[in-house]
Design a protein around this nucleic acid. Sequence first.
DNA 1: GTGAAAGCGCTAACAA
DNA 2: TTGTTAGCGCTTTCAC
Lengths: 340, 340
Amino acid sequence: MASVKVTSQDVARRAGVSQPTVSRVFTPGVKVSSAMEAKVRRAAEELGYRPNTLARSLITGQSMTIGLIVAYFDNPFYVEALEKLSRALKDKGYNIMIFMAANHAGDVDQVVQDLLDHQVDGIILASVSTSSDLTARLNEEGVPLILFNRGHSDKSLSAVTSANRAGGAKVAEFLLAGGHERMAHISGWQGASTGRDRCDGFVSALQAKGKEPLAVVDGLFSREAAAAATRSFFSAAETPDAIFVGNDHTAFAVLEVLRGELGLDVGQDVSVIGYDDVAMSAWPSFDLTTVRQPANRMVDAVVAQLIAQIEGRATEPRQIEIDGPLIVRGSARKPEGWVE
Amino acid sequence: MASVKVTSQDVARRAGVSQPTVSRVFTPGVKVSSAMEAKVRRAAEELGYRPNTLARSLITGQSMTIGLIVAYFDNPFYVEALEKLSRALKDKGYNIMIFMAANHAGDVDQVVQDLLDHQVDGIILASVSTSSDLTARLNEEGVPLILFNRGHSDKSLSAVTSANRAGGAKVAEFLLAGGHERMAHISGWQGASTGRDRCDGFVSALQAKGKEPLAVVDGLFSREAAAAATRSFFSAAETPDAIFVGNDHTAFAVLEVLRGELGLDVGQDVSVIGYDDVAMSAWPSFDLTTVRQPANRMVDAVVAQLIAQIEGRATEPRQIEIDGPLIVRGSARKPEGWVE
DNA sequence: GTGAAAGCGCTAACAA
DNA sequence: TTGTTAGCGCTTTCAC
């Protein structure tokens, strides 16, 4: 019940050594004679001593904590990323302080301040953006920030994304090769670089082959918006024979409208392609052709770059793009003679 | 670039006051004359000062941080809970340090130690359990721990669950009222109280009406295990006309096997009922009848109880059960004359 | 390699 | 109310 905090001082007394010696034993990479080490470890064991990381951080200026800011977890891609990030950072000795923030700069800035107050060593922004004011402040304080799955025009920010333009282009080429004629796009939110880049890549690749998309609608990364867009496509005179959707999570809503409300045979009457390759896309219920965002490699890149900046090995911010393959499943008609 | 840390000392000099006066201005509920306050605030503003919460925590013994340990996010129920927990705790002024842990006591204990080293004020365990050794140690250190969605035989631990036995019973009664004859159960993992209680409630309620379940298999909260169990049910001589599954996430796998591989009309040929009522259960692809776990109320209860224990208002641990309704959708045959 | 002394940035106890 | 003094638990000089 009563909080029995054991300090290095207590251990020192019991082991008959000085307090800094105790500290040295618990600081990796500091030399202590094995005799001392043994005495101290035994005393510590007996008392149940563990170093107070707060006190340590106060001195070293390193909290070994990374702040993670996420807007929402509706999209399972971010859930998968969180899981991987958590494990990857833990492996490197870092802990995660997590915050949910509304996706507008004001709220994000507020949360970043909170994190700075906690002396985090670095910050990861997943699916949100921040103001340039704050970026400047972060630079001043020497706390690196990195964007996950978002690009940014400010090249003083590090960012890791997949190759979204290239991904959009792959979709266009696959659909063209499959003989599709009327390709619509329900884009990701145009306020986000991912939404814009996938869209640009797709449209540009079509145009490069002398084709125009049948329609392009901003699906806002929202199931409801995507479902509404799908209905509107099929109440028009000319209906699409393929729909490229800005991410898997919203593509599922599109599939449901097509199969359920419209009674279409997806993959036959109409092709659907998503983006992300979240685990659910492989479920039989969806069987979605999609562009994979390699979450593992993206996470590894984020962690490596962030830690490099924290440790001063990388002073320059980097924008890293990771390429991902098109994963072909049943939701889209395959080109003739298609081989895996 | 260079880390320009502004301390209360800097602010004090600039404002021409003592350092503790600066501290007082930034400590809520401490009296300062408005003249002082104004001077200090202006100086702080000009220098961009913000208090260092680490230093504060070192003295007060309160980190205003809660440790959250989660085993996995495959089940979206935990994702929803994390999102709500994060926002609820933030509202109360607490931050979350999150860890993923493998679901065996050794790893969990390790992570709990980590959290204690960081002087967290309380710990939430979601979907994992801990050893009694550690429980004792936590009591000693005065750090409250609470289980989310797991019960525990040790009544010195607080826990928040839904009324799992009652929920299982509701399912049995609904299926019986619907005239089902051969009811199978793919239970949640029997190593977890939630899995056991739902199972017990279901079976007991059947037996109370003089019925026995056709079959009960441990689905381990795993999609693969649940799918395998489903296949085995339908390769037996007597096949079920209803399957109660331990949670929604695994029920989706059951639905897919029934509809896809077995070509059955779910809701007509066979009824399926899940547990949780995650958002996806309402999607047209699944349309799953399920027992709702009221995540909002469960989260509110966890936060209230944990904070009460932290602040010393509640010295007694509590086991809280929250009741949830059966949500009737298309995956199960309804009793005659059923009204919502 | 070890101990003594200093101090991270802050709050708490005490005078003034 | 405000300033002075002390000290949270630890790491980091600096002598020895």
